[in-house]
């Protein structure tokens, strides 16, 4: 039997078809009854209706099922169309390879450019700090609103230890202090002024700093009876420039005139701490209205601390790692 009518695509059409189907049934029955049992048209109609039962109820039931069929058919239609269009597109692309090539290259360049720009923006604007868990980093400073309005200062070492020992909402606290180290000349190198940062041992874990050679500071290195650091960690750049990337540099001493420091390690290169700190300072400047006009977190002493946020306030101090 060949298909003579399209499958119903709309509710109205499905309705019409259902009515036609039921009418066909009743009409067929009526004719049959008139023919075989010699009933009048009226009597045959009544008998056909009686045999059919509750017309409206059955019609409604079938109607509900049709709705389901219709919905599924529509879904299948969409899938079919997608498949067909995809096949068609693929065939078209294969048929004209040069056009396809140009299209793909154009798209690739466009996507590449967009990705590159986003990556740049992401690095420079959206995610400026190269540290782990930056959303938990807070900056602790000192404000003197009455005498030095608008300026922010670092904290004293005593305060650092006070916070470190007493704070319960901070997972860890680190200390840093920028200054200039004067390294006297030796036979091969002239005397030079080198930027240095005095840091607490905790700052390495906090800022994700790793050694490429030797070791990092430990809390034992923080205990200097005379107040002067006795160990030093070289930056990658200084290690290459001054020591020619000598792998045996660990254990050597740098003479600083009346005292000397022992080289215990070389930091892995991970961008400039100074730049990153400056950015951190700028970030805090944005968030702290009082320090907004001029912020100098890099002068003097400052401390960075890791906040556990509201969740851990009152809890035990957690290891930042």
């Amino acid at each position: 039997m060949k298909r003579v009518f399209r499958l119903p695509g709309t509710r109205r059409r499905a309705d019409e078809e259902l009515d036609a189907e039921l009418r066909f049934h009743l009409e067929g029955r009526i004719e049959e009854l008139m023919e075989r049992e010699h009933l009048t048209r009226e009597a045959a109609e009544l008998e056909a209706k009686r045999r059919f039962g509750d017309y409206d109820a059955y019609r409604r039931e079938a109607r509900t099922i049709d709705d389901g069929i219709l919905q599924r058919r529509r879904k299948m239609d969409v899938i079919e169309t997608l498949k067909r269009e995809t096949r068609h597109a693929a065939r078209t692309l294969v048929r004209s390879p040069s056009f396809s090539f140009i299209t793909i290259v154009t798209l690739a360049l466009g996507l590449g450019a967009a990705t590159t720009i986003f990556t740049l923006l992401d690095r420079v604007v959206l995610r400026p700090l190269p540290y782990p868990n930056t959303e938990r980093l807070i900056h602790i400073g000192t404000l003197w609103p009455k005498s030095k309005a608008g300026e922010e200062y670092g904290i004293a070492r005593g305060q650092y230890f006070y916070f470190k020992n007493r704070s319960r909402s901070l997972a860890d606290i680190a200390f840093y202090d920028y200054s200039i180290l004067v390294v006297p000349g030796d036979g091969d190198h002239p005397a030079e002024r080198v930027p240095e940062v005095n840091v607490s041992a905790s700052s390495f874990a906090m800022f994700g700093i790793r050694p490429q050679l030797g070791r990092l500071f430990t809390t034992a290195d923080e205990l200097n009876p005379d107040g002067d650091p006795r160990v030093i960690l070289l930056s990658d750049g200084y290690w290459r420039r001054r020591f020619g990337a000598d792998p045996n540099v660990i254990g050597k001493r740098i003479s600083l005139g009346e005292r000397s420091v022992e080289i215990i390690g070389v930091r892995a290169w991970s961008g400039s701490t100074r730049t990153a700190s400056r950015r951190l300072g700028a970030k805090h400047a944005q968030s702290e209205r009082q320090a907004a006009k001029q912020s100098h977190p890099l002068r003097g002493r400052a401390a960075e601390a890791w906040s556990d946020g509201a969740r851990n306030i009152g809890g035990a101090q957690a290891d930042p790692n």
Partner: peptide, 15 residues
Amino acid sequence: IEEGALYPALHRMEE
């Protein structure tokens, strides 16, 4: 068989 019952049954089997 109530004849009307045939149609919901047919449609359900179609579904």
